[in-house]
Write a protein that binds this DNA or RNA. Structure first.
Lengths: 225, 225
DNA sequence: GTCTATATAATGATAGAC
DNA sequence: GTCTATCATTATATAGAC
């Protein structure tokens, strides 16, 4: 079986121009956002701007293919990361800035809003669902009174914090940003561990009162029925 | 003393065209983002597009004035909210969607990135600093091992969650979005109280280990000096 | 398949009449 | 101060040559 880019080399040369354009667009979108122009993308792919329109028809169509490709590679990286390290894994992760481009592309997709943002968000929540369920099962994570609501809210929080920091970091490349996140930028490890271990509120009354209120409300609703 | 818009009425009529343009721009920027065109803004202000250039010179200059005005009104609303309700207060909060425009404008500023995003972020953190310090002082909020780092991280989290939800809510007006947030959209009250009261991790070992590591590192550094 | 050249639309900014 | 008309730029998309 022959796999196109199983080596660690830059897979530019033996790809069709169409695929090169798509990959260049993913990089440009990650670096500059989705208002990256055809000229920029064409230059990176080594083709003329007109060829992009010729192959993809419209910018929306180009972006749709990029979205799909990013999700596909994201799935690939994730499943490879769960399994034991295979030969496949290194080909992707060794390429400098590749996983970074994936993550930053998804941030850009959320940033741009619209239906694609919702699709990516749901996909991220789906993945987090498995991680959280596993954490609860192994006893690492507390059970929640509403697992689904917690899952979504925690995703909003963590994804949003990443986005805010990305947007307010001046002129950073995807690789540099992801590297700084992995290094625990700005002393965030301690506050993260504090919040996730101890919370921030000093006593339980607000939570307990609200839980009691919810229970009363539900009992009342059951009564009516 | 005569105050221009002390009444509860729409303050359009007796404002100069320049001020009407600025206010219209703030509304347009909040609703459509900063790529709202001069034509859109001019239409809302009831003037011609050319007049915007004539008064403000450039779009950046217009936005700078809008930023300043939003920050000014934000300060005004905040200080009025802290003091007892005065006559001034109602004039602003009664106007439908006014506080909403302020909040959403700031979200848009973060969203657009660059130096203005950093300015607004720092301003929000500054305000949160007082709130957190007060919470710790009254015993409502746990003290942190690094108050400043926690402050910043909590701001990233909460502001980011707001931004992600705003970006992934289809075609929502500023007023509707803020209203849904105030109503506790999507069952977020419970997970928020859970997280802030109990955290999510089941035991303390990760936090305790990290705190011990930090202390060792600091002692080592002190030794070297 | 690929390029060059061009059409078309929208934007911010400018000039001059009133 | 305000408007109309226009310019210059940029973007995507298209047409036709090679």
């Amino acid at each position: 079986m022959r796999i196109a880019d199983s080596s660690g080399m830059r897979p530019d040369a033996d790809l069709t121009a169409r695929a090169r354009i798509r990959n260049a667009a993913i990089e440009c979108f990650a670096e500059d956002g989705f208002d990256a122009s055809f000229r920029t993308i064409a230059q990176r792919a080594g083709v003329s701007p007109g060829l992009i329109s010729h192959h993809f028809g419209s910018k929306d169509a180009l972006r749709a293919e990029c979205d799909a490709e990013v999700l596909r590679k994201y799935t690939e990286v994730k499943t490879n990361a769960v399994d034991r390290p295979s030969e496949h894994l290194f080909g992707y992760l060794a390429a400098p800035g590749f996983a970074a481009d994936l993550v930053v592309y998804m941030l850009r997709a959320i940033h741009a809003g619209g239906q694609p943002a919702r699709d990516f968000l749901e996909r991220i929540i789906d993945d987090a669902r498995g991680v959280m369920a596993h954490g609860v099962q192994t006893g690492l994570v507390r059970p929640s009174r509403d697992e689904e609501a917690r899952l979504r809210y925690l995703t909003y929080l963590t994804l949003g914090a990443l986005l805010v920091q990305f947007l307010t970091t001046p002129g950073v490349t995807p690789e540099a940003f992801i590297a700084s996140v992995q290094a625990g930028q700005g002393d965030q490890i301690l506050p993260t561990l504090e919040l996730f271990t101890e919370g921030v509120l000093a006593d339980r009354t607000m939570l307990d009162d609200y839980v009691a209120y919810i229970q009363e409300r539900n009992e009342g609703a059951t009564h009516v029925r």
